[in-house]
Amino acid sequence: MTVFGYRLPAMSSLLVWGLLWEIIGRLGLTFFIPPLSEVIGTLFEIIGTPAFLKALSETSYAFFSGVTISIVVGIPVGILMGKSRLLDELLLPWVNIFLSAPLTALVPVLMVLFGFGMTSIIITTTLFAIWIIILNARAGVMQINRSLVEMGRSFGASPLDAFFKIYLWAALPEILGGVRIGIIRAVKGVIIGQLLISIVGFGALFELYSSNFLMSHFWAVLIVLFALAFSISELLAYLERRVAYYAAKR
């Protein structure tokens, strides 16, 4: 987008929307949309409060646990599926099912099995993230150029060498892509888990604010959440481009 020959930065239109938000808030059209300035003021008020920090740390804990489990389990499983046809044929249908299944429906099961607490939220997060990580690691291993495999063999690479020096790197762009999408899904999963099991983290905070009609508090937390989620996804995309710079040139 260029105006009078000057290129507007990509995300700059958010300022326009912020302005629109402020105007609507000032006009007092609806109780549910307080002016943006008020929301931002509230944001700085609550950002240091114990309630907010507790919610943030609980959410981060669930999020990082879920993501770690997904990565540590998902990548090896995906690589094994890519290497072993039997394993692939046994597992692939289930991976595909869970990838497209509405996982929210499983949360009540987790609640009755693992209780209304952190465990259920961590498992929800894992369930949201892990399938795409498995699938991408598998795809990454399967697309490795045959001649690269044969090159390793003809130069006498041991299986271990071949794995760490060739296969892992050759599949890395896909693996990283899977991890990025998995993490974005994990953010959604952790929030959905907290909404349904609303005594932990931001779920509890939302419950508190909405039952007391604290609109600008609510929006302030939403802004923080959305900004965090967006930053995570942009950061991961950036890292992916840096690390997998050779992906497009294979």
């Binding site: 959604k188 929030i191 909404l195 909405s210 959440l225």
Partner: peptide
């Protein structure tokens, strides 16, 4: 990228 479910309340 955002967890839009948080808008439900």
């Amino acid at each position: 990228a955002a967890p839009l479910a948080a808008l439900i309340p």
